[in-house]
């Protein structure tokens, strides 16, 4: 549905996005993840036709955003980071205006206005002035605007920025409910957002793609089983020795201890899952096993790993 190929965008001598290539399939929710200033907004602005690319092509629903901008824009709904609302207008006036400039008119416009007000939960404020609404409402009015012409593609730039936790959850549910009928691409620098709403993630850093995959794939790829945390109640020294004797274990370190329970960090050989052996060893010796887990990198750690690694390899990029 969205095909980005070799996209490069320069602002004068500054390279904001460099040779970015990825696809978004129909009906998919793609997360665009990266620290601030990574080039997320720039990429989205090119996809929506707001900025022309310096090099490369972007196609939306088969239409090149440079060659056939009107056709591409007709199929794209865009919610910028700052909802593009006119504070003087009422919600209804605003949606009517947005609908008209996007080619929705007459009875169809009225129907769409009702539908998107319902979807975005702004039905109760339709006659209120947008300037007097709360940030959460304004964000939803912005989203309603993006949906008014029932676009194939929905581009959302940090849709939950600045909302309170309840509104964030509501917005995420809303986005999830839009998947399927719309192809969604959303950017964020907040990680839980990605694992909660997106089917696939593109991690971007310093204007380059650092990784692509499902949140699970990324987690698996980066954390591995090499490090296992095990919490045992038993004689510390013996436990340590016993675990060290297991095949494939390279090193056992005392991680922390409290209430007689000791947690060990077990480092195993590459690609070796020693969890089952560790569990058997502990139980066979009649010690009490309280917890056994891979020292799973959280998404945050993966994110940091991906983004800092990239910068480390290319000091020139900073």
């Amino acid at each position: 549905m969205i095909e980005v190929e070799g996209l490069t965008k320069r602002y004068g001598p500054t390279v904001a996005v460099s040779d970015v290539t990825f696809q978004v399939r129909k009906g998919e929710v793609l997360g665009f993840l990266g620290p601030n200033g990574a080039g997320k907004t720039t990429t989205m602005r090119v996809i929506t036709g707001y900025l022309p690319p310096t090099a490369g092509t972007v196609r939306v629903a088969g239409f090149d955003v440079v060659e056939q901008p009107l056709e591409a824009k007709r199929r794209t709904g865009y919610l910028p980071e700052l909802p593009p609302v006119y504070p003087d207008m009422t919600v209804d006036e605003y949606l009517a205006f947005a609908g008209r400039i996007k080619g929705v008119a007459g009875a169809e416009l009225k129907k769409r206005m009702d539908a998107v007000s319902e979807t975005c939960a702004v039905s109760d404020v339709r006659r209120r002035q947008i300037g007097k609404l709360s940030k959460g409402y304004r964000q939803r009015v912005g989203l309603a605007q993006a949906l008014i012409h029932n676009p194939d593609v929905l581009v959302l730039d940090e849709p939950t920025a600045g909302l309170d936790p309840k509104q964030i959850i509501e917005t995420r549910q809303l986005i999830k409910s839009l998947a399927g009928q719309h192809t969604v691409i959303l950017s964020t620098h907040i990680l839980p957002e990605v694992s909660k709403t997106c089917e696939r993630v593109v991690v971007i850093n310093g204007g380059k793609i650092a990784a692509v995959g499902t949140p699970e794939e990324l987690t698996r790829r980066l954390q591995g089983f090499e490090t296992v945390l095990v919490t045992v109640e038993g004689p510390e020294k013996e436990v340590k020795e016993k675990i060290e004797r297991i095949e494939g274990v390279n090193l056992v370190e005392r991680h922390e201890a409290s209430d007689g329970r000791v947690t060990f960090e077990v480092h195993a050989a590459k690609d070796k899952d020693v969890r089952a052996e560790v569990a058997r060893a502990v139980v066979e010796s009649q010690w009490k096993l309280f917890e056994l887990k891979t020292s799973g990198l959280s998404l945050e750690e993966i994110f940091l790993k991906l983004t800092t690694k990239d910068l480390g390899e290319e000091p020139a990029a900073t």
């Binding site: 009107l70 794209t76 865009y78 609302v85 947005a98 996007k102």
Partner: peptide, 14 residues
């Protein structure tokens, strides 16, 4: 200033 220029320039208008 208000960012609404993004709405205008990303709508199917010349």
């Amino acid at each position: 200033r208000s960012g609404t220029i993004e709405l205008l320039l990303t709508s199917p208008l010349t």
